[in-house]
């Protein structure tokens, strides 16, 4: 399946997604994170189109570990769990997403960071 990859800046992410996302056209797949090393992390928001063959769009933004990431829950209510998973796994901070989906609330481990 070919992916259309759109590279955006994290600050523009919410505006971009607001103009792009229409609940009746796009199916929200998931939020994904990939640790790039050197304190950088790539965040991805992935969508697919209803009723069309092989159309997947991936928005990607590169950010630092410490940056506070805005949440897309106000736009896509079903993103809550995916965001909490990213918070648990990478130790990044996403607005309104609490730690403790898989790990303990006060756990200090970040399993999917490549340095750890």
């Amino acid at each position: 399946m070919p992916i259309r990859k759109v590279e955006i800046r994290l600050e523009d992410m919410l505006d971009e997604l607001t103009t792009f996302y229409d609940a009746k056209v796009w199916h929200f797949l998931t939020v994904n994170g990939i640790d790039l090393g050197d304190g950088k992390i790539e965040l991805q928001w992935i969508f697919s189109k209803y009723g069309v063959k092989d159309e997947t769009v991936l928005f990607s933004a590169v950010t630092a570990y410490e940056t506070k990431v805005p949440s897309v829950v106000s736009l896509i209510p079903s993103a809550t769990l995916s965001e909490r998973e990213i918070v648990d796994m990478f130790g990044v901070e996403i607005e309104g997403a609490a730690k403790g989906l898989y790990l303990d609330e006060d756990s200090l481990t970040m399993p999917l960071r490549c340095s750890l």
Binding site: M1, S48, Y50, G51
Partner: peptide, 8 residues
Amino acid sequence: KTDVRAES
């Protein structure tokens, strides 16, 4: 009407 069998 969503089904990956029809969408991939």
